[in-house]
């Protein structure tokens, strides 16, 4: 009973606080988003805590793959895409977890929620900074991998696929990490929640990258590319719509 009433009150307050400013929501959404991105990046560039952890982790994963798969010249061709995306996915969860956990532990999340900004600004802000971390790691892993295994990964089309794949992964990952950080099991839960939902984007990204690296016909790359775009659009939209429910108190 009381719970319901509180809920009702909460909702009324919510609409009250949004309504008067709703006609200026658009510019302030952008501004708030970038403020959050700026804050995250500034904090990161001071310590490089997150990026360095993700990076070292990625390199370790690649080394382990090297011995686990016996990456000789023949095998390398066909598994490079798989190895890369597995590495990115694992390093990605590491980053997603950490970036939300610091927010929660230092009480920043409450501060952000209290701030008079649209909740979606928090989502987009966190998603963009998570994406930035992931791209930084990828930008270092790619040349290292190229040097180690003597394959040229510096191709504009491959970078495009990696960008699209990372966007989709981070779009879902940011939403789910905001959820998992509020549960009892926290870090353990994120990959369990994220991987089954992110399977389409990872599969499509692997297929597209593999197609490019093995020099397949363009038509073969086009299908996974389309799926990547569809996935990105759909999940950014869904995450944007439901993020309010995830951070609601």
């Amino acid at each position: 009973m009381t719970n319901k009433m509180q809920n009702e009150e909460g909702r009324m307050q919510n609409t009250d606080s949004i309504h008067p400013s709703s006609f200026i929501t658009h510019p302030s959404l952008l501004k708030a988003t970038f403020a959050i991105v700026q804050k995250d990046l500034a904090a990161e560039f001071r310590s490089f805590e997150l990026v360095s952890a993700m990076l070292v982790f990625s390199l370790l994963v690649i080394i382990i793959f090297n011995f686990a798969l016996e990456l000789d010249v023949k095998v390398r061709q066909s598994v490079t895409a798989g190895v890369l995306w597995t590495t990115f996915a694992f390093a990605g969860t590491l980053g997603l977890n950490r970036s939300m956990a610091t927010e929660k532990d230092r009480g920043c999340m409450d501060g952000l929620l209290l701030a008079p900004v649209d909740r979606s600004a928090i989502y987009f802000g966190k998603a963009i900074s998570n994406l930035a971390f992931m791209l930084i790691v990828e930008a270092i892993v790619l040349p290292v991998y190229s040097v180690l295994y003597n394959v040229n990964l510096f191709r504009l089309d491959l970078i495009g696929i990696i960008l699209l794949g990372s966007i989709g992964y981070v779009a879902v990952g940011t939403l789910l990490s905001a959820m998992s950080v509020q549960t009892r099991t926290r870090e353990v839960l994120l990959p369990i929640l994220l991987f089954p939902v992110a399977i389409p984007v990872l599969l499509a990204a692997v297929k597209a990258s593999n197609g490019l690296l093995t020099g397949a016909e363009f038509a073969e790359v086009l299908i996974p590319l389309n799926i990547l775009i569809v996935y990105d659009v759909v999940f950014i939209a869904v995450a944007f719509m439901v993020f309010d429910f995830v951070v609601e108190e």
Binding site: V172, L176, V197, V234, F235, V238, V242
Partner: peptide, 8 residues
């Protein structure tokens, strides 16, 4: 989560 799963 069911919504995300249902879309995915």
């Amino acid at each position: 989560y069911t919504l995300l799963g249902g879309v995915s």
